[in-house]
């Protein structure tokens, strides 16, 4: 009987292992495929030309990706500058300062934001935000600023819902202890609740950042997509993801390989950002 049971266990274990491996193998296949397609051309023309070259003329064997790298980093940073304060403030309000009924109504509404297709965000940006920027700040409107604002809004649901979970996970006994010492609600949030929730908050910011750097459609629609280093926040910009999406349909030969090289760089950047953010989270938490 016992042996039979353990045999059944082993079978289940094995099949679960296979399922888990299949998920991982998809990731592995994607990685291998991108690198296999992208690395040879990087080797041929030199990593330096890809990373630091400023000219992207794929038909003339000029594959400088610096404008796109800067573009991706700029709009991601811009999205974080807009999305993180707004998102954390919303999460703090919904968990600590609003009553149950209001937050019970608002939280699902915010989560609904995550379900809106990115093309809709892009469309709204194109219809309202871009003309607004053009009229009030100058430039073509299609810009770093427009992309940052749209992305900042798009990452809000991610940041808010993870931050809410992180703040709710802080035991009430901390809040009680603080209030009972004569602290105000805000002091309690600032000095106890947020530090206690820090690792969860950073996790939310990392996921938001991942969403911002990976977003393509909405960015294509509002960023202007010029493959030049942006001179200001009002200048158009092209991101790494846009570069791939815009040109893959007609690219062939080395041009196509250069787009895979773009993917390789995107991949590495995301890995580095994740690693740094994790490191920061752990360090801060220990302190």
């Amino acid at each position: 009987m016992a042996r039979h049971k353990s045999g059944g266990d082993r079978l289940i274990r094995l099949s679960l292992l296979l399922v888990a491996l299949s998920a991982i193998s998809v990731l592995a296949i994607i990685t291998i495929f991108i690198f296999e397609q992208g690395l040879p051309i990087m080797a041929k023309y030199g990593l330096k030309n890809f990373l630091l070259g400023q000219d992207w003329f794929p038909s003339e064997q000029s594959f400088g990706l610096l404008p796109m790298i800067v573009g991706s980093l700029l709009v991601t940073l811009g999205a974080l500058v807009i999305g993180v304060p707004l998102g954390l403030a919303s999460a703090i309000f919904l968990t600590e300062f609003s009553n149950r009924r209001l937050s019970g109504f608002l939280k699902p509404v915010i989560e609904l934001l995550a379900g809106i297709p990115s093309v809709v965000y892009g469309f709204l940006g194109l219809m309202f935000l871009v003309p607004f920027i053009r009229k009030n700040f100058g430039g073509p409107g299609l810009s770093v600023l427009a992309a940052s604002i749209i992305l900042g809004i798009m990452i809000l649901p991610t940041i808010i819902s993870i931050a809410i979970d992180a703040i709710r996970a802080v035991p009430d006994s901390y809040r009680e202890g603080s209030i009972a010492l004569g602290a105000t609600r805000w002091q309690t949030v600032r000095m106890v609740v947020l530090p206690a929730a820090r690792s969860g908050l950073v996790a939310g910011i990392i996921l938001g950042m991942g969403r911002a750097i990976g977003e393509t459609m909405a960015v294509i629609m509002v960023a202007g997509n010029a493959a030049d280093l942006p001179g200001s926040l009002l200048a158009p910009v092209r991101t790494l993801t846009s570069n791939i999406a815009l040109e893959m349909a007609y690219a062939s030969g080395e041009h196509r390989q250069a787009l895979f090289a773009t993917g390789v760089i995107l991949f590495v950047i995301i890995m580095i950002l994740n690693f740094l953010a994790n490191l920061a989270a752990r360090k801060q938490f220990r302190k």
Partner: peptide, 29 residues
């Protein structure tokens, strides 16, 4: 009022801060 009438709870609830920061917490607030 809560400074003058302090409270100790059922389960020890030190904040997830250093010993120093815990003790001076009330002073800081």
């Amino acid at each position: 009022l809560r400074r003058r009438i302090g409270m100790v709870f059922q389960r020890p609830n030190p904040f997830p801060l250093s010993i120093f920061d815990n003790v001076v917490y009330g002073l800081r607030v």
